[in-house]
């Protein structure tokens, strides 16, 4: 894997997994309607972590009801279904309430995509420093490695999350900006404090 920090691009000549194919299928539709950034576990898995997941988490930029309607119809047409509800009004209202909604291929529930709108400035910043991972058959936008590590270590904090962070720290060791991680750590701490966590 080659990480060009200046261009914010990782070139990965990996053999695509079924999870990668699912991701490319789904994201190819999403990006026709709004911006997205993949966050959390799949970022580590895409970049080599030796584990499986049942879901891929993404932030999508806030969209209008009409834009959502178009996106939902395109997803249905392509063979995806929403696990949480069928009516688009209901699905959209979940998103507006700050909840995540899940989509999978028709007649299956795993793997699935978990979509949500960013809920505050810290979440929204994911769209300003994302990285593009170039794969043999397409590309995927992921959160910056520093943001990924900071959220795994200081927000999610389970053993699995800490291991996900460790994998990225070890693979990209010399290219990680620890000043940025420490700044994010403070922002996460403040957010946790404000939320009473």
């Amino acid at each position: 894997m080659e990480y060009n920090q200046e261009k914010k691009k990782i070139t990965c000549k990996r053999e695509l997994s079924e999870l990668d194919r699912f991701a490319l299928d789904f994201l190819g539709i999403i990006e026709r309607f709004t911006d997205y950034v993949v966050i959390s576990g799949y970022v580590s898995i895409l970049l080599g972590r030796s584990r499986v997941t049942e879901d891929i988490d993404i932030f999508i930029k806030k969209i209008t009801k009409e834009q959502f309607s178009n996106m939902y119809n395109a997803l249905k047409e392509a063979g995806f279904w929403c696990i949480n509800a069928e009516k688009e009004d209901e699905i959209f209202s979940y998103l507006e309430e700050g909840l995540a909604v899940r989509f999978s291929y028709e007649k299956t529930a795993i793997p699935n995509f978990e979509l949500k709108f960013p809920k505050d400035k810290l979440d929204e910043e994911v769209f300003s420093d994302f990285i593009i991972v170039e794969l043999p058959k397409g590309s995927i936008k992921i959160s910056s490695l520093e943001r990924h590590i900071a959220f795994k270590k200081y927000y999610l904090k389970s053993d699995k999350d800490k291991e996900d962070a460790k994998h990225i720290e070890e693979v990209f060791s010399s290219k990680i900006d620890y000043n940025k991680i420490n700044k994010l750590k403070e922002l996460i701490k403040n957010r946790n404090k404000n939320a009473g966590k």
């Binding site: 000549k13 053999e15 079924e18 194919r21 898995i45 080599g48 030796s50 392509a78």
Partner: peptide, 27 residues
């Protein structure tokens, strides 16, 4: 870090693909 992408991903895919049903992608 020390092996080609094709090599580590081939091994990783044995784990991932054993749990996810193959499907012909839209592409």
């Amino acid at each position: 870090r020390t092996h080609e992408d094709e090599e580590w991903s081939r091994q990783q895919n044995m784990l991932i693909n054993s749990q996810i049903k193959p499907r012909v992608s839209i592409k």
